[in-house]
């Protein structure tokens, strides 16, 4: 039984790490600000869920499980709110989102 728990938490942890890493790459590669906020905050929430779920399996029924639940709830509440406030502040201060779609060039790659 404990081997099953280890395997499941191992899968959750590694997929959470992959999501977090994809979020980091997305924040770097995206062309303008709003796509970066989208990339970073989306995978951030998903990575948090997976990693903390993986750790919760390891924690078992203990006080640490309650602390992990509190961390998960707070992170899931605060991270989207912070991203919304960030995008809202940027929009209010005049950083216009790039409305025109990136027209694909002959090889199909989007050109700004």
């Amino acid at each position: 039984m404990s081997m099953m728990i280890d395997i499941v938490s191992w899968i959750l942890l590694l997929s959470g790490g992959a999501f977090v890493f994809i979020g980091g790459i997305g924040a770097l590669r995206m062309p303008n600000f709003y796509t970066r906020v989208h990339a970073a905050s989306l995978t951030d929430s998903m990575g948090t869920i997976l990693i903390l779920a993986g750790i919760m399996l390891q924690a078992g029924w203990s006080l640490a499980l309650i602390k992990l639940l509190a961390i998960l709830v707070f992170l899931l509440l605060t991270c989207p709110t912070a991203s919304y406030a960030l995008a809202n502040a940027a929009l209010l201060s005049g950083l216009k989102p790039d409305a025109k779609t990136l027209s694909p060039d002959d090889k199909g790659r989007p050109t700004p």
Partner: peptide, 19 residues
């Protein structure tokens, strides 16, 4: 605002790394 986004990402990752 990109820098604030980076700070936000860094903060939540620190919380994850700590746990």
């Amino acid at each position: 605002y990109d820098r604030v986004l980076a700070v936000n990402m860094f903060g939540t990752k620190t919380a994850l790394l700590l746990s």
